[in-house]
């Protein structure tokens, strides 16, 4: 009915997350002169990269009306598996680039397989995404604990220094995780905005029946969103492992919640039907910046990081709802 007010409403939900990010940056710059320094900016971006890469995949899953709670423990499991495989290859292949390449391939394949498994259980057997991924979350978390025998899996020391540049190195002072994150974001944005796949995700999320009656291959599209997310978890793990060179049962803890939160803060609708990748990037940056700000300033204890993030998530959803109400 209210044609005239529709564009204004949309604009508000677009501006909301950007405004919040700008406010955070301004506040940060006022409170600490180092905040906008090169070191801090690249630090924030690099820290955002892991969650960010996963959150881009999560944007597609949520837009298509799904959910994946397993990504954090999936990352931990993949990290553990990757370290075990690489360590076991050192005696036969020696310390060298080939071992690391095999490790990377294992991470991507394991991620893809895990994503496909979630997707098949959800689409073929018709089990709720929440239940399936709640289950796989527990399974992967338990598997990594078992692989590490309750402790920590450490990458071969020599291999570690060879692998480290993937996290710490880069070109023109921009580290690899930032570059990979940026590439994933650009591809994700294009896929969401201007491909049939992105359009189909939004259609399925807004009304699965309509999508089915419109000859959309609903199951295949949904399966693809979970598989792509799994692949991206593998990619994020590849960037993450060289940072510490180890994996334990605490690796990737609560990443799923941070990724989902970033997607929602960015304006993607939790029930599906509408998603935007650039919004997710802003969501990730907002979450990371809060932690960063608390560390740089001493107005609020850094221990309250979680509380502030939580408040922002709830606030974002409230604003989203207000945008929808007449």
């Amino acid at each position: 009915m209210s044609d005239a007010t529709a564009p204004r409403r949309i604009r508000m939900t677009v501006i909301g997350p950007i405004l919040a990010l700008v406010l955070l940056v301004v506040a940060g710059a006022l409170m600490n002169p180092n905040f906008l320094g090169w070191d801090n900016v690249t630090n924030v971006l690099a820290r955002s990269a892991f969650i960010g890469i996963i959150a881009v995949g999560m944007t597609f899953v949520i837009t298509a009306g799904g959910l994946d709670l397993s990504v954090g423990s999936m990352a931990a499991f993949i990290a553990g598996l990757m370290i075990l495989v690489m360590n076991s290859l050192v005696p036969s292949m020696g310390v060298g680039i080939p071992v690391i390449l095999v490790g990377m391939a294992v991470a991507l394949l394991a991620g893809l397989a895990a994503g496909l498994l979630n997707g098949i259980l959800i689409t073929r057997l018709g089990i709720e995404a929440f239940i399936v991924t709640l289950g796989s979350m527990g399974i992967y978390r338990s598997l990594v604990t078992w692989l590490a025998d309750g402790g920590t899996l450490s990458l071969d020391f020599a291999l570690r220094s060879l692998y480290q540049p993937v996290y710490y190195g880069g070109i023109f002072g921009i580290t690899w995780p930032i570059i990979v994150f940026a590439v994933v974001v650009v591809i994700g944005e294009i896929v969401m905005r201007s491909t049939a796949f992105g359009r189909h995700c939004a259609a399925i999320g807004s009304n699965e029946q309509v999508a089915k009656y419109s000859s959309v291959r609903v199951d295949r599209v949904r399966l693809t969103t979970y598989a792509a997310l799994g692949l991206l978890v593998g990619l994020a793990t590849i960037m993450y492992v060289p940072r510490l060179g180890s994996a334990s049962s605490a690796t990737g803890m609560l990443w799923e919640l941070e990724a989902i939160a970033a997607v929602i803060i960015g304006g993607t609708v939790l029930k599906g039907g509408f998603g935007r990748v650039w919004g997710t990037v802003i969501g990730v940056l907002i979450l990371t910046l809060i932690g960063n700000l608390l560390n740089l300033t001493d107005f609020v204890s850094p221990y309250l990081n979680g509380a502030i993030q939580g408040a922002i998530i709830v606030l974002a959803v409230v604003l989203q709802r207000e945008g929808k109400a007449r």
């Binding site: 359009r199 189909h200 807004s206 309509v210 509408f274």
Partner: peptide, 22 residues
């Protein structure tokens, strides 16, 4: 409930069934 995406615009609805053509 089965024919149209009520929350989307005319264009997205029109081309949904034959999106590969575009």
């Amino acid at each position: 409930t089965r024919g149209l995406l009520l929350g989307k615009g005319l264009r997205e609805n029109l081309t949904l069934q034959a999106l590969s053509k575009f």
